[in-house]
């Protein structure tokens, strides 16, 4: 019986944890929808191009991070190596695009 109680504690722990995770997922999902609405709103509303483009880009980056960290579980343990590789790849790609756009195509 003692074992059973023990496993009950464990169940309880995982239940709490899953609940918390679910909460974060829902919050992120809601925020992503909000972001999308904001982005649409900015385009529909007659704002300056120099305001709209940077905001949309920032929102896009945040959405990608949400996607990676909450929906694709990059925030969990054991994902250090994949995230290191992802960000190194992003670094190499951004550097390339940055250089080509600033040096070559002006």
């Amino acid at each position: 019986m003692a074992d059973n109680t023990n496993s009950n504690y464990q169940d309880q722990f995982f239940k709490e944890k899953h609940k918390e995770e679910m909460k974060y997922q829902v919050i992120t999902f809601a925020m992503m929808i909000a972001f999308t609405i904001i982005a649409f709103g900015l385009v529909v509303g007659d704002f300056s191009k120099y305001l709209v483009v940077p905001i949309i880009l920032v929102l896009a980056v945040v959405q990608v991070l949400f996607q990676l960290y909450y929906f694709m579980h990059l925030n969990q343990k054991g994902h250090e190596m994949p995230s290191l590789m992802i960000f190194s790849g992003v670094f190499a790609a951004v550097l390339t695009i940055l250089a080509l756009t600033t040096i070559t195509w002006i």
Binding site: A99, T104, W105
Partner: peptide, 12 residues
């Protein structure tokens, strides 16, 4: 097109 793009891509 642009010839310099090859040089950049090749050396990247």
């Amino acid at each position: 097109g642009n010839e310099i793009i090859w040089e950049h891509i090749f050396w990247i």
